[in-house]
């Protein structure tokens, strides 16, 4: 919709407006869900996993619908993909540096 230069018709307009409200409501429900599983679930780990899933959905929705990334051309995707990749590299490599998943037991003298 960002590309349109002609003014949308009034019907379009109220439809879009309604969609925005509904989308926002969906986001709110997502956050409410996050909060309530915090009361329901006892384990931190399962809560983190679920909470992150909900957050990821919300973020994707915001990005693609509210920020209408879905309507943008490829070049933005190109650098966003790299950005996300580097961010995750920062997450995981820093953590991996702290823990060594490999142990060379073969060399240790019992």
């Amino acid at each position: 919709m960002s590309e349109e230069t002609t003014t949308p018709s009034a019907a379009d307009f109220s439809k879009q407006s309604r969609q925005i409200w509904l989308g926002g409501l969906g986001l709110m429900i997502g956050s409410a869900l996050s909060c309530s599983i915090f009361n329901l679930l006892s384990s931190t780990t399962s809560h983190i996993v679920l909470g992150l899933l909900i957050a990821a959905t919300q973020v994707a929705f915001q990005l693609f619908v509210f920020m209408h990334l879905k309507n943008e051309r490829g070049i933005v995707y190109k650098f966003l993909v790299f950005t996300v990749f580097f961010t995750f590299a920062l997450f995981f490599l820093t953590h991996l540096a702290q823990s060594s998943p490999l142990h060379f037991d073969a060399f240790s003298s019992k």
Binding site: G24, M28, S31
Partner: peptide, 24 residues
């Protein structure tokens, strides 16, 4: 949580503002 709702609401309003401009 209230702050989350506030921000989501503001996300909606800012989009509505933009839509209104599109509609002139």
């Amino acid at each position: 949580f209230v702050n989350t709702l506030i921000l989501i609401l503001s996300s909606i309003t800012v989009l509505q503002a933009w839509l209104s401009l599109k509609m002139r």
